[in-house]
């Protein structure tokens, strides 16, 4: 018997209020522990797809299940608990620039505390040590008290990963995590994601523009075109020509 998927999309549609189609009849499942890469041109719906998983974007119709539970009805505390088990990494890092690295990393833990404790900064000793360990995993423990905006882009992205680790997530969503990084730091960030995927069995979903990167890291690649799922293969069956098609056919149409 096959294990139940951690995420499943059934007939998911998303139409923006201005009429733009974001997602069109998306159907697929993601098993626990997969490293999934989503490719497609800008505006194909990759970011939208990612953000529907943690309800940063609402869908218009269809059903998304996580751990077998439909997530569309979640509100308030239930929604926050859903988001807690889904880490997210952004193209622009999205750290609080003027705060220290420690505070940024600890902010990944706030959903484990009642609001008043987060306001007083009453984190347990264990969680403060956890913040240091998270930074050690991304090789930045020596920057604990540095201000976030004093770090380079690659370092900031690794701090963002450390923040995500504080959530103890089952899933990590990464929206173009390396789009604004140079090749060397790109490798550092992608390697970190791969390590978390393999060592902690975290399901990782990454939006990428780069076909070589996708082939290097993915267990499976899906392709989006104008909001539709046009490609879905395990990495062993992916050919260079397929991936070029995802980009080229649309470019020709446009």
């Amino acid at each position: 018997m096959e294990e139940a998927p951690i995420i499943s999309f059934k007939h998911v549609n998303k139409i923006y209020s201005n009429g733009t189609v974001g997602l069109k009849d998306i159907n697929f499942e993601i098993p626990q522990g997969q490293f999934l890469v989503v490719v497609g041109l800008s505006g194909a719906g990759k970011s939208t797809l990612l953000r529907t998983i943690n309800r940063m974007h609402e869908i218009t119709s269809g059903e998304i299940k996580i751990d077998g539970e439909p997530i569309q009805t979640y509100k308030g505390q239930a929604l926050r608990l859903l988001r807690r088990k889904i880490g997210m990494i952004f193209q622009g890092f999205n750290l609080v620039n003027r705060s220290s690295v420690e505070r940024n990393v600890l902010s990944g833990r706030v959903s484990y505390y009642p609001t008043w404790k987060t306001l007083c900064g009453l984190f347990t000793q264990a969680d403060r040590e956890m913040a240091v360990r998270s930074l050690q995993r991304v090789n930045l423990a020596d920057k604990l008290y540095t201000r976030a905006d004093e770090l380079s882009g690659g370092q900031q992205q690794r701090v963002a990963i450390a923040r995500t680790l504080m959530q103890e997530p089952k899933i990590i969503l990464a929206d173009e995590p390396v789009a604004s990084l140079d090749p060397l730091t790109t490798k550092a960030v992608m390697d970190t994601l791969q390590r978390l995927n393999r060592e902690d069995n975290i399901t990782v979903i990454v939006n990428l523009h780069s076909v070589p990167l996708a082939r290097q890291y993915a267990d499976r690649i899906i392709g989006l075109q104008a909001g539709q799922l046009v490609y879905d293969r395990p990495i062993s069956e992916v050919t260079e020509a397929d991936l070029n098609d995802i980009y080229v056919t649309e470019a020709v149409q446009a």
């Binding site: 929604l79 902010s107 609001t115 306001l119």
Partner: peptide, 25 residues
Amino acid sequence: MGSLEALTSVGASKVTIIWYAVLPQ
């Protein structure tokens, strides 16, 4: 608004988001 988005994705409450992402800025 980026850091607010990040704090939202972490599962922080509205007040916590304001405290951690808005006030420092």
